[in-house]
């Protein structure tokens, strides 16, 4: 059977509708078409599994999987990440978020990434043990900012739980 290579949703690129599918944001009919293509197209299937891994890594669930780093780097090669100034308005907001998430995940994966919580009462998640290199920002450094910012938020007392990741700013000539 011949593979169908037209975009499933005209106007959206493959990573966009794949991300949308991953986030459960396509309807049943479109979802069936994605699944059919995934079963037939190996490249697409690999990409799909990388997206899943990125999602898992972002949630801190998959760091122990063998070969993860190699696969994330492969994903990175096809997903250059920009933390860019003001975004252009896109024709459809529906698809922007999933792609942004995948891109952010790739940026995180580019560097050894570490998660911890800003609440001192919590112990560091197990990922820290698996990844000994730590970023220099300390949770204790962030707490005063959170506290000072709460002067202007409407939450009365709540102390939010935060996680941090080292990222790379791409495409900024000045600033440093």
């Amino acid at each position: 059977m011949m593979l169908q290579h037209e975009p499933l949703n005209p106007g959206h690129t493959e990573p966009e509708w794949l991300s949308a599918f991953l986030d459960g944001e396509v309807d049943d009919a479109e979802g069936d078409r994605v699944l059919e293509r995934l079963s037939q197209d190996r490249t697409l299937a690999r990409r799909w599994s990388e997206y899943c891994l990125i999602g898992d890594a972002l949630r801190g669930e998959a760091l122990a999987q063998p070969g993860l780093e190699r696969r994330l780097r492969a994903a990175l090669a096809t997903e250059p990440t920009l933390l860019a100034p003001l975004r252009r308005k896109r024709s459809s907001r529906h698809y922007t978020r999933p792609l942004a998430w995948a891109a952010a995940a790739a940026a995180v994966a580019a560097v050894t990434w570490t998660l911890w919580t800003a609440l001192p009462k919590h112990t560091a998640p197990s990922q820290m043990a698996a990844q000994p290199e730590a970023v220099t920002l300390q949770a204790s450094h962030v707490l005063p900012y959170l506290d000072a910012h709460q002067d202007f938020t409407q939450g009365v007392v709540a102390q939010p739980e935060m996680r941090f990741s080292q990222v790379t700013l791409v495409g900024l000539e000045d600033g440093r």
Binding site: V135, L137, P160, E161, M162, R163, F164, S165, Q166, V167
Partner: peptide, 12 residues
């Protein structure tokens, strides 16, 4: 270091 942070539900 350039570090990004987000709260659990993404609000902050």
């Amino acid at each position: 270091e350039t570090v990004r942070g987000e709260s659990t539900k993404g609000m902050l």
